[in-house]
Simulated assay, not measured.
Amino acid sequence: MSTPAEYYRSLPPVSKTYGVACLMTTTAYYLGLISPGSIYLNYGLVFKHFQVWRVFTNFFFLGPFSFPFAMELFIIEKYGVSLERGPFDKRTADYVWMLIFGAMSLLMMSFVPYLLSPFMGSSVVFMIVYVWSREFPNARISIYGLVSLKGFYLPYAMLAFNLLLGNPLKPDILGMVAGHLYYFLTVLHPLAGGKFMLKTPLWVHRIVAYWGEGTQINAPVQSNPYAGIAFQGRSHRLNGNTRRTSTPEQPQTNTAQQPIQGDGVAFRGRSHRLDGR
């Protein structure tokens, strides 16, 4: 059995980063470092007082420590990791783009006053559930050990349980809409003969490459070779040579016609015979 540290290191990067960010946000709330009023989505404060951070921070607060909070972290750990290791294996940038597209879709829907939610992290989590259900429609799952069903029906079963528990359904429904929109544009529409219209942008590839985590098949940019290195610099030889190349050796030339090039020599010049010739 692996230790918690080994288990943490084994998680794929995107799901791990998002889950840890949500956990740290709730921890900061309990420590009194932040308040929900300072990070929730409010377009009036965004546009009038330039509190742009609210557009991003509202996706990282899943509520206080509670059973629903633990279940949403469990969903990220189980279904998000399953997506990242399955359909999105070696497609880190594509998975990041799926989450970004879902967040942008939710922001667009929130311009409708009735659809506005102060915190939309739960909607992103439910979007993960919906996309997983479409990618693994025949997988057998068990909900709380009470009901066994196919993966395709998981979002609808979770909606029914939330209804019985008295939890609000609007965040879940918005997450389903965002997830279906992504799945339609990337899978259903191309399979029906339509054009693939949701290609991962180049700037997302560049962010993932600079991040240096995960892999992307046929990435248009190279990953950052220095990601995670605390100090970067160029080595120098003590004899004054500032750059060392690995070019193949050149054939020897006539030293009588070409002066010898040396590094670290205090004086370099042309020799003369003492008899003046």
Rank of each mutant, 00 (worst) to 15 (best):
residue 196 F to S: 03
residue 154 L to Y: 05
residue 180 H to A: 08
residue 60 F to H: 06
residue 240 G to V: 14
residue 163 L to Y: 15
residue 194 G to Y: 05
residue 2 S to H: 07
residue 208 V to T: 09
residue 223 S to G: 08
residue 75 I to L: 10
residue 100 I to G: 00
residue 152 F to G: 02
residue 266 A to G: 00
residue 250 Q to V: 06
residue 213 E to G: 02
residue 136 F to E: 11
residue 87 P to E: 04
residue 109 M to A: 02
residue 135 E to L: 06
residue 227 A to P: 08
residue 6 E to Q: 12
residue 57 T to L: 01
residue 32 G to R: 03
residue 122 S to G: 02
residue 239 N to E: 05
residue 227 A to E: 13
residue 275 D to M: 06
residue 238 L to D: 03
residue 173 I to T: 10
residue 63 G to F: 03
residue 190 P to C: 08
residue 186 T to Q: 01
residue 267 F to E: 08
residue 267 F to W: 09
residue 1 M to C: 06
residue 168 P to Q: 08
residue 67 F to W: 11
residue 174 L to D: 05
residue 246 S to C: 05
residue 60 F to Q: 03
residue 119 F to N: 06
residue 35 S to K: 11
residue 59 F to G: 01
residue 81 V to Y: 10
residue 88 F to N: 10
residue 228 G to H: 10
residue 56 F to D: 02
residue 95 Y to N: 03
residue 3 T to L: 09
residue 152 F to I: 11
residue 28 A to L: 04
residue 40 Y to F: 09
residue 158 M to S: 05
residue 48 K to D: 11
residue 218 N to F: 09
residue 136 F to Y: 15
residue 75 I to D: 07
residue 190 P to I: 15
residue 214 G to W: 08
residue 94 D to G: 02
residue 180 H to G: 01
residue 131 V to T: 11
residue 91 R to D: 02
residue 244 R to I: 15
residue 169 L to G: 12
residue 131 V to F: 03
residue 137 P to G: 05
residue 102 G to H: 02
residue 276 G to V: 06
residue 264 G to Y: 12
residue 50 F to C: 06
residue 246 S to T: 14
residue 261 Q to M: 03
residue 42 N to M: 00
residue 238 L to H: 04
residue 39 I to N: 04
residue 157 A to L: 12
residue 156 Y to M: 03
residue 184 F to R: 14
residue 193 G to K: 06
residue 82 S to D: 14
residue 159 L to Q: 08
residue 141 I to Q: 03
residue 254 N to R: 12
residue 33 L to R: 02
residue 221 V to Q: 01
residue 11 L to A: 03
residue 248 P to D: 14
residue 223 S to L: 09
residue 102 G to Q: 06
residue 100 I to D: 00
residue 252 Q to F: 12
residue 258 Q to F: 13
residue 247 T to W: 05
residue 27 T to M: 00
residue 181 L to E: 13
residue 203 W to H: 06
residue 197 M to Q: 15
residue 148 S to V: 14
residue 227 A to N: 13
residue 212 G to D: 10
residue 101 F to W: 10
residue 112 V to T: 04
residue 188 L to G: 02
residue 168 P to E: 05
residue 114 Y to E: 03
residue 81 V to E: 13
residue 89 D to K: 05
residue 97 W to C: 07
residue 14 V to H: 01
residue 200 T to M: 02
residue 148 S to T: 15
residue 69 F to K: 02
residue 252 Q to A: 08
residue 264 G to L: 07
residue 82 S to T: 09
residue 39 I to W: 07
residue 112 V to Q: 01
residue 139 A to L: 11
residue 105 S to L: 10
residue 100 I to P: 00
residue 137 P to L: 08
residue 246 S to L: 09
residue 138 N to M: 10
residue 95 Y to G: 01
residue 213 E to W: 07
residue 154 L to Q: 01
residue 179 G to V: 11
residue 108 M to F: 11
residue 99 L to I: 15
